[in-house]
Every structure is written in C-alpha cells, then in structure tokens.
Computed example of a mutant assay.
Amino acid sequence: MKRVAVAGASGYAGGEVVRLLLQHPELEVGALTASSNAGQELGSIHPHLTPLADRVLQDTTPEVLAGHDAVVLALPHGHSAALAAQLGDDVVVIDCGADFRLRGADAWTAFYDTAYAGAWPYGLPELPVAGGRQRAALEGARHVAVPGCYPTAVSLALAPGLVAGVVQADDITVVAASGTSGAGKSLKPHLLGAEVMGAMSPYGVGGVHRHTPEIEQNLTAAGAGDVTVSFTPTLAPMPRGILATCTARVVPGTSAAAVREAWTNAYADEPFVHVLPEGRWPSTGSVLGSNSVHLQVVLDERVGRVVVVAAVDNLTKGTAGAAVQCLNIALGLPESLGLPVAGVAP
C-alpha cells in the first residue's frame, strides 16, 4: 500500500480526492490538511466521508506532508508552487491547481497574478497529441499538473479532429456550462442558492477566463498549428458537472463519416472516454460521480462546422479523478485502478 497525503482536504476537490482514495485497493489515505479548517474533524466538513469522519485536519506544512509516497495538492491557484518546492524529490506530487499547467510564462502572466512557477507534465493521459498521447509524458513522472475542468472537457472534445486533420484551428467556439462547485467552497454572494436556483448566467466573457490559454495550449499540441478559441463559460443551477458545446470549421470536403471516424478511432481503446452511439447526447447526470467523459460529434453540413458536446463531472474526471488516474500512472499501477466508470443516477 502506498500512503497518499491530501493537502486542502476540506475543499470540494480535496474531499473528492479522499472519496476516491477510500475505494482504491492500493492506496492508503495519509495526512489530511487544511488552512482555516485545520483542527476540525473531517466529518464536520465532509459528512459523506464516513470512514474518516473522526480524522482531524492538520495544518498544511511540509513537515506534516513528509514521509508519504505521494502528495495531492488541492489548494487555491497560486498556493502550490511554494509548498511543492519544500517537498522532497522522493515523493510524487500531483497538483490539482493551475500553478504548473501552462508551458509559457507569457500565457501565465496574462491570466494570473502570481509569479510563473514553470510547467510540470500535463495530466490528461487520453489527450491526442501530435505523435501519440499525453500519457507517455506521465509514466514515471514525479510531478504532474492536473488539468482544469473546462480544459478537460473541451480538449478531449476537439483534439481528435485536429489530429486527424478534419478540423480547422482558426475558428473554434466553445460555450460551456458548469455547476457551482467549480468555483470552490468559499462563500460568494453570486453562488447563493437564491441566486443560482432557476437561473443561468455567463461569466468570464470576452476571452478573460483563466482556462482559455490552457485550452489553446492543449489543442495546439494536437499538431494543427496555432489555435484560437472563443470560450464563454456559464454557471448552471446544479452542484457539479460540465456540459461543453464546441464547434469548429471542418476542412472543406470532409464527410460526416470521416468526422465520426476521427473521434471513434481516437478513443476506441480509452476506458474513460466514450463516444456515444449516434443520436444519443451527453448529459451531466450520466457522468455524475464517475471518471468518464461522454462525447457526441456531428457535422452540421449546412454551415460546414463540426459540433462536439462533452459531459464530465468537474470534481471527478475534471479534478480528483484525473489526480488519481495520474497517480496510478506515476506509481506504475494500472491506470484505471480504483476509479469509477459508471455514474450515479438518478
């Protein structure tokens, strides 16, 4: 058994990491830490984590996290880099924040207000990239940057078309809806039930959302040259889940059959990415609590655009599930070990 500490266990992402670790046959939950919630019992914050309800959250310090085989950092953006620098090279560190996702300093400083910390191997194993899969960069890695939730959905939705050369890179539009847990657990007036229930609203409009450069980075890695993305996120009245509708121009002369073949071939052997049968559309309810991504792709022949819809659970495959998946790869365990494929319904 490998012992895994979770820093930031009181948050939504950290709590989801703990939930998945509890059902993992080869990983044991080690220290659980928090910031303002340190000293409280885990069950007072995450009552659904019954097996560890009496566990007291400790302060997030390098000393508490020392002595583990792996550490998962589920901290706010900008807080991982300093802590990771104090952890030894003998520990596998999986960062769920944004600190190490971007490969360019300019892209980081344009969207974030902290110093650029560099880039770690990017933790989206299934991502089609020029020459193969992102998985190859994760085998034996000691540090991994978990993708953002929106980039997970959007990148997996569009990369097959770019790799196959059936989609053009210069006119990509994405409108995606997310549940409120994507904004974290801090109290915010616009996330109150009275504000969210029965309503949808856009935010981060006009190319300012922090996940935009990450999406463009991933799609550029598919080998189609520089990618431009118009990304509009929206807030949906649900706790968790992402539904991303992605469109792009197809290469002239591309048939509907060629479009579908590009996606089905790309994910034929992937256990967590499912291209649904024709006519069946993704739903966030179908992936709830799972590490699965549901996709559907069609060609709108009238306007010459491909339409791809992706559904993921932002806390599972969008964050914590990806962390455990990458941890499995880094530790040499079967990639899908301990991760749920089936969702929870209704």
Score class of each variant (00 low, 15 high):
Val4His: 06
Ala5Arg: 04
Gly8Trp: 14
Tyr12Met: 09
Gly14Ser: 03
Glu16Thr: 13
Val17Tyr: 03
Leu21Asp: 07
Glu28Ile: 01
Gly30Arg: 11
Ala34Ile: 02
Gly43Gln: 02
Pro47Tyr: 14
Leu49Ser: 04
Pro51Tyr: 12
Asp54Tyr: 06
Asp54Val: 04
Arg55Phe: 00
Pro62Ala: 05
Glu63Val: 10
Gly67His: 14
Asp69Trp: 03
Ala70Lys: 03
Val71Leu: 09
Leu73His: 13
Leu75Asn: 00
Pro76Gly: 06
Ala85Ile: 03
Gln86Trp: 06
Gly88Met: 02
Asp89Ala: 13
Asp89Ile: 06
Val92Gly: 07
Val93Met: 11
Arg101Gln: 06
Leu102Asp: 01
Gly104Pro: 07
Ala105Met: 09
Ala110His: 01
Asp113Ile: 02
Gly118Arg: 06
Ala119Leu: 15
Tyr122Leu: 09
Leu124Ser: 13
Arg133Gln: 06
Ala137Trp: 12
Gly140Ala: 01
Ala141Asn: 11
Arg142Pro: 08
His143Gln: 12
Val146Arg: 14
Pro151Ala: 06
Thr152Asn: 10
Thr152Glu: 01
Ala153His: 02
Leu158Thr: 03
Ala159Trp: 15
Ala159Asn: 12
Pro160Trp: 04
Pro160Ser: 10
Gly161Asp: 07
Ala164Ile: 12
Ala169Ser: 10
Asp170Asn: 14
Ala176Glu: 04
Gly179Gln: 12
Thr180Gly: 04
Ala183His: 15
Ala183Thr: 00
Lys188Phe: 01
Leu191Gly: 07
Leu192Val: 07
Glu195Val: 07
Gly198Pro: 06
Met200Leu: 13
Ser201Pro: 00
Gly204Lys: 00
Val208Pro: 01
Thr212Gly: 09
Asn218Asp: 15
Asn218Thr: 05
Gly225Cys: 06
Gly225Ser: 04
Val229Gln: 12
Pro239Arg: 15
Leu243Gly: 05
Leu243Lys: 09
Thr247Cys: 04
Val250Cys: 10
Ala256Pro: 08
Glu261His: 10
Glu261Trp: 09
Thr264Glu: 14
Tyr267Phe: 15
Ala268Tyr: 11
Val273Met: 11
Gly279Tyr: 04
Ser283Asp: 15
Gln296Leu: 09
Gln296Phe: 06
Glu301Asp: 15
Gly304Met: 14
Val312Ala: 11
Asp313Ser: 02
Asn314Thr: 08
Gly318Pro: 03
Gly318Arg: 02
Gly321Ile: 01
Ala323Gly: 02
Ala323Pro: 11
Gln325Trp: 03
Cys326Glu: 08
Leu333Met: 09
Ser336Phe: 04
Leu337Tyr: 07
Gly338Trp: 11
Ala345Leu: 14
Pro346Met: 07
